[in-house]
Amino acid sequence: MKVMVFVKATQDSETGVMPSEQLLTEMGQYNEELARAGILLAAEGFHPSSKGVRVHFSGTDRTVTQGPFTPAQELVAGYWLWQVNSMSEAVAWVKRCPNPMPGDSEIEIRPVFEAEDFGEVLTPALREQEDRIRAQLETQQQQ
C-alpha cells in the first residue's frame, strides 16, 4: 500500500526557521534507511505558506488567495511518499523518525487511493488513461 506521510507545520516552520545541521543530518540518515528498506518513493519539504497560494473553486469561479495561511498546525511543512505493507508498518517507521521540528511536532499518515479502490466507476477507458499517464511519468523521470 502507498501512504503519504505529512509533517505538520509549526510556528517555527511557518516563520521560515530553517532546520539545524544536526536535524538535516539525522533526517538524511533516516531517509537513507527508508531508501535501503525499499519503501521511500519521494520526500520533500515546503517553504512557509507565506510563499504559497490557494485557489478556491465555486462552480466555474476561481478565487486565488495569497498566503500566509493559519493556523500553522493545520498546514503541511513536508512529506514522504512510501510503499509499505500495512499502516502498522508505516506507523513503526514514523516512530523511528527524528523529531522533524524543534519542540513538539506531529506527523500524519494517510493511505493513497489505488485503482481498485474506485470499483466500477474506474472504467476500462479510465484505467487505460491512468496507465498511459503513469507510463509517461516514468519515461519523463528516467530522462
Rank of each mutant, 00 (worst) to 15 (best):
residue 4 M to C: 10
residue 5 V to H: 01
residue 6 F to A: 10
residue 6 F to L: 15
residue 8 K to G: 01
residue 9 A to C: 11
residue 10 T to C: 05
residue 10 T to N: 08
residue 11 Q to F: 02
residue 12 D to K: 13
residue 12 D to L: 14
residue 12 D to Q: 10
residue 13 S to P: 02
residue 13 S to K: 05
residue 14 E to N: 11
residue 15 T to N: 15
residue 15 T to M: 09
residue 15 T to S: 15
residue 17 V to M: 11
residue 19 P to E: 00
residue 20 S to A: 07
residue 21 E to F: 11
residue 23 L to P: 04
residue 24 L to Y: 04
residue 24 L to T: 05
residue 25 T to W: 06
residue 29 Q to T: 13
residue 29 Q to A: 11
residue 32 E to H: 06
residue 32 E to G: 06
residue 33 E to L: 12
residue 33 E to W: 06
residue 33 E to C: 02
residue 34 L to I: 01
residue 37 A to E: 14
residue 38 G to M: 11
residue 41 L to D: 03
residue 42 A to P: 07
residue 42 A to E: 09
residue 43 A to G: 08
residue 43 A to T: 04
residue 44 E to P: 03
residue 48 P to K: 03
residue 50 S to M: 13
residue 54 R to P: 15
residue 55 V to F: 00
residue 55 V to T: 04
residue 55 V to L: 06
residue 55 V to K: 01
residue 56 H to S: 07
residue 57 F to R: 12
residue 58 S to M: 05
residue 60 T to Y: 03
residue 61 D to H: 14
residue 61 D to L: 13
residue 62 R to H: 14
residue 62 R to C: 10
residue 63 T to M: 06
residue 64 V to M: 12
residue 64 V to Q: 04
residue 65 T to H: 10
residue 66 Q to L: 05
residue 66 Q to D: 09
residue 66 Q to H: 05
residue 66 Q to N: 13
residue 66 Q to R: 07
residue 66 Q to S: 07
residue 67 G to N: 13
residue 69 F to P: 04
residue 70 T to H: 09
residue 72 A to T: 14
residue 73 Q to W: 04
residue 73 Q to A: 12
residue 75 L to Q: 15
residue 78 G to Q: 04
residue 78 G to T: 01
residue 78 G to W: 02
residue 79 Y to S: 02
residue 80 W to G: 02
residue 80 W to E: 02
residue 81 L to Y: 00
residue 81 L to F: 02
residue 82 W to S: 00
residue 82 W to K: 05
residue 83 Q to I: 00
residue 84 V to S: 01
residue 85 N to W: 12
residue 86 S to F: 02
residue 86 S to A: 05
residue 86 S to K: 15
residue 88 S to N: 14
residue 89 E to D: 11
residue 91 V to D: 08
residue 91 V to M: 08
residue 91 V to I: 15
residue 94 V to Y: 00
residue 95 K to V: 12
residue 96 R to K: 10
residue 96 R to C: 05
residue 96 R to A: 07
residue 97 C to V: 09
residue 97 C to D: 01
residue 97 C to Q: 08
residue 98 P to V: 13
residue 99 N to A: 06
residue 99 N to L: 07
residue 105 S to I: 01
residue 105 S to D: 03
residue 106 E to L: 06
residue 106 E to Y: 10
residue 106 E to M: 08
residue 107 I to A: 00
residue 107 I to G: 00
residue 109 I to E: 09
residue 109 I to N: 06
residue 109 I to L: 08
residue 110 R to Q: 05
residue 110 R to S: 04
residue 112 V to N: 01
residue 114 E to C: 07
residue 114 E to Y: 13
residue 115 A to E: 14
residue 115 A to T: 07
residue 117 D to P: 05
residue 118 F to R: 14
residue 118 F to M: 14
residue 122 L to C: 14
residue 122 L to I: 05
residue 125 A to C: 07
residue 126 L to D: 11
residue 126 L to M: 14
residue 130 E to F: 15
residue 133 I to W: 14
residue 133 I to S: 09
residue 135 A to P: 03
residue 136 Q to T: 11
residue 136 Q to H: 09
residue 137 L to Q: 09
residue 137 L to T: 12
residue 139 T to L: 15
residue 142 Q to E: 08
residue 142 Q to M: 15
